[in-house]
Design a protein around this nucleic acid. Sequence first.
DNA 1: CGGGTTTGACCTGCGC
DNA 2: GCGCAGGTCAAACCCG
Length: 325
Amino acid sequence: MMMKMEDPMESLTSFSESLFATSNQQQQLGFMELLGISGSHQEEYYFSSPFGSMLPSSTTNGFTPSMTTSSSPAAEVLNNGPATPNSSSVSSVSSGGNGGGGGGGAPNDHEQTTTHCDKSVGLGDDEEEQHDKTKKLLKPKKTSEKKKKEREPKFAFMTKSEVDHLEDGYRWRKYGQKAVKNSPFPRSYYRCTSASCNVKKRVERSFTDHSIVVTTYEGQHTHHSPLMMPRPSPLASGYSQGVSGRIPASGFSLQLQTLALPPDHQRQQFNNFAPLNCGGYNSIIHTVANEPSLRSPASSASIRGDYGLLQDMVPITMNIIKDEP
DNA sequence: CGGGTTTGACCTGCGC
DNA sequence: GCGCAGGTCAAACCCG
């Protein structure tokens, strides 16, 4: 739909600028706030991972992640850093535009059951017809709903990772996959498994830099992260402990590839990625080494528990994001 | 058996 | 109006 490829460099610039422009206005937003509580016209936010070579260190001093206050339906996008030849670029954006797709009007699982309609009415004689009707019955709902479904705020991350589906503390159910034009990588669609939660997310890889995963969240979780709840899961427990007992209202974590940058750069970039760690939300970014062994859940758990490192790297308070002009 | 994934078909919006 | 691309559905399949 409105996905358009743009010049990576240009995108990065505009993206960064938009971020800077709004950083002062959205200084203390937590991740979930960014996710769900956004300005009425803020529809999609893009964060570029502070890790990896995505962001040139030269830009980090100014790159203050924040929401874009793009008033246009399609927040302009991203990019990525010129630091490496493989810098990715993500295109993007859409304002959720379509919202619609088949069944489009049924973002929620429970709503999907709306097959209510008259599946039983006027059943066809044969299966084919029945099947056909079943599908067509979805239409009334769609059309009956407002023309333009309210657009959920979106929030995108660019993450340098070898795994497509990054662990973020929530449980997701994949409900679709689609080939993306101009990209050899398919886009996957996930929906939060929680019944009353209609948060969705799209996961796709940057076709310019295969190592970068673009995750776009849409909606707002109406529940706590399953992984944050007391469970006999090493990962969950490790994480909980990792945050020093502070169970986030909305946990969020990302497994990111470690940087091949000096500690100072890591710190700086991490700080610049403050939104994940601000507003009182203990959103955490994890660094995961390239070693496959470290990408296993167990390993991730161990890393999660190592909040010391994160703490060392990331101040709980949002210093950077608060940087005044 | 329940829950998650795969996949082909369908629907919608948009650009031409 | 048509075609394209994105988004979603849901049956079939897979797996623990």
